[in-house]
Design a protein around this nucleic acid. Structure first.
Length: 563
RNA sequence: UGACCCGUGGUGUAAUUGGCAACACGUCUGAUUUUGGUUCAGAAGAGUCCAAGUUCGAGCCUUGGCGGGUCAACCA
């Protein structure tokens, strides 16, 4: 708390503190997170969630969850449920403040009638094409609709009949009467209601006219007493309309205490991925990924299944900051945040992903012994475990080179390394198949070096992870990489789409050999020593346990090897 | 050629009443290490889009450029 207070404020916090000081809203802070239930939440939403809920928490206010469900043809309860699950998983709580824009449909309709009576709204019988054609362009003013100056009574009658289902979809709309010549396109008589004979996930068949976003959002904020309505930059041009509706609808005398204001901030963009619900939906529908929660997806559910922790995502949102400038953050920052969290907390185990047989020729056949291994060097309280050693082992193929470069500290013909928590071994012989590929290493071990230290003080440069072949548990390992090859997936050649930039190797499934500890282990997150963080995927149920790679460990050897 | 918003190391975010441009990620050294992980110590990297103005002093204020973004769904 105290460290938080010393940090500099982002521009929204600064504004809130100003408001608090000036006594605006009587010191009350109320925010809201307003998703449309037409897709799954992604990391960009996580930024918004952390912002809205975080601000409420910091300033002793409340944050509502409100579903912006004004378009029944795109929305679904599946999405409502997933959204709630994701917000809870992130660690935020909206208590009983779960609202739907559709809760306000009756009130919204009354307000629509009010605007009609004030001569500020009219029923337009133009087609969608006509409305579009007469809207003008940013530099050319629009033309007024021939229906614009109908008498109030006629508008009222028509609106009522629209509501009662008398007219087919698209035949009429209710429009605000503002200014067809406004330089702001959104003020050129925006549509308030359209006819959609569609079933709504909440209101069923009660309505066949539905309010547009602009006619619903500000009023919903007002109804809920939102003090700070935060949204992304592209809604900036909507703000005059947000204000216009509120100004013309609210008749309350103490309107200023209740008045809500929209503030825009820059949305989150991240490299090597896409962050649009439309494109994410396309990836799902066209089966380029395995559902919304595919661990390669930037969705919250995908990150969860990948093994990200709520803590790490919140931390990420904090570090990313809030401003009005377009930004693209490096996915490396997200990875850094999980590593930071998982390093402190995760159980270490040894597992070999790309096995190379090692036979310890001077270790008795049939013998095995249990050696002590530390569960988490960052947390002594996590204790130790036993890991079995025997004559036949697997090590990682990458940990052996027949002709090693100078800085290679691992196993090579004649070299000695430590097997973690076990013994020093020396490579005596390399066995190859008819293709010349190394298939087995014949090694000797130093019985004096049990546990990993030699009494004569001999040092070795390398320490390898390993697993006893006969004791190892086979498992399915899913190695994930970035979904797109290019930093900017939209950077395409003529005739290509973002799909052409997909990384064909974003998922590799291999068999891993894990130390037997895993059989009874109940944790979800593990660090496979020297390899990375892995998450037990319980959604996939088969004979073998499945592990998703959350992130690799930082690998300074990989950098050296590249040179 | 309209309106609105935004330009600070490679990336992201700071710099409170104008006062030595800071922090994080990344990068590079070195130390420690039974994970080439972690940790620790250090370094490089921007003179704040450009120009003029105000000022003792401008990233911050003014003016004019330049560059980028958003807006013309009966989507949100």
């Amino acid at each position: 708390m105290s460290s938080e207070e010393n940090k500099s404020l982002n521009f929204i916090e600064a504004m809130i503190e100003e408001d608090l000081k000036s006594g605006k809203h009587n010191g009350r802070i109320q925010t809201r997170f307003p998703p449309e239930p037409n897709g799954y939440l992604h990391i960009g939403h996580a930024k918004s969630i952390c912002l809205n809920f975080g601000l409420a928490k910091k300033y002793n206010g409340k944050c509502n969850l409100r579903f912006d469900d004004t378009n029944p043809v795109k929305e679904d309860v599946e999405y409502v449920d997933s959204i709630k699950e994701d917000i809870r998983w992130l660690g935020f709580e909206w208590e009983d403040r779960e609202y739907f824009a559709s809760d306000y449909f009756d009130q919204l309709y009354e307000w629509a009638k009010l605007l009609v009576k004030k001569g500020l709204a009219y029923v337009d019988e133009s087609s969608a094409d006509e409305v579009a054609a007469t809207r003008g362009t940013p530099t050319v003013p629009g033309k007024e609709s021939p229906f614009r100056n109908r008498p109030v009574e006629e508008n009222l009658d028509l609106l009522e009949r629209m509501k009662s289902g008398e007219f087919p979809d698209g035949s009429r709309v209710l429009r605000a009467k503002i200014d067809m010549a406004s330089p702001n396109m959104h003020m050129r008589d925006p549509v308030m209601y359209r006819i959609k004979h569609a079933h709504h996930h909440r209101t069923g068949n009660k309505w066949c006219i539905y309010p547009m976003y602009d006619f619903a959002h500000g009023q919903s904020d007002f109804i809920e007493g939102i003090t700070h309505s935060l949204c992304t930059l592209e809604f900036e041009v909507h703000r005059p309309l947000y204000d216009w509706f509120l100004d013309n609808i609210i008749e309350d005398s103490d309107v200023n205490a209740k008045r809500t204001h929209q503030t825009e901030f820059a949305r989150l963009n991240m490299n090597y991925t896409v962050m649009s619900k439309r494109l994410l939906l396309q990836l799902v529908k066209e089966n380029h990924v395995d559902g919304w929660d595919d661990p390669r997806m930037p969705t919250i559910s995908g990150l969860r299944r990948r093994g990200y922790t709520p803590e790490s995502v919140r931390n990420f949102a904090e570090r990313v900051g809030v401003a009005k400038r377009e930004n693209t953050i490096d996915v490396g920052l997200l990875e850094h945040c999980v590593r930071e969290d998982l390093n402190k907390s995760s159980q270490r185990i040894m597992g070999v992903i790309n096995p190379l047989k090692v036979t310890i020729e001077n270790y008795p056949e049939g013998k095995s012994e249990d050696l002590d291994a530390v569960n988490n060097p960052e947390d002594e309280n996590m204790g130790t475990r036993k890991v079995p050693f025997s004559r036949n082992l697997f090590i990682e193929q990458d940990d052996f080179m027949e002709e090693p470069p100078k800085k290679f500290f691992r196993l090579a013909p004649g070299s000695e390394v430590r097997l973690r928590y076990a013994y020093f071994i020396t490579c005596k012989k390399v066995v190859k198949n008819e293709n010349g590929e190394v298939v087995e290493l014949i090694c000797t071990y130093d019985p004096e070096s049990k546990g990993g230290n030699s009494p004569d003080g001999r040092k070795v440069k390398g320490t390898l992870h390993w697993v006893s072949a006969e004791h190892a548990v086979e498992s399915e390992i899913r190695l994930y990489d970035r979904l797109f090859e290019k930093e900017n997936p939209y950077d395409t050649k003529e005739g290509e789409t973002f799909l052409d930039n997909m990384n064909k190797d974003s998922l590799k499934i291999v068999t891993g050999y894990i130390e037997p500890f895993i059989k009874d282990a109940t944790m979800n997150h593990y660090q496979f020593e020297r390899l990375g963080y892995f998450y037990r995927d319980r959604k996939i149920t088969g004979e073998k346990p499945v592990f998703n790679r959350t992130a690799t460990l930082r690998d300074s050897w990989a950098k050296i090897a590249k040179q």
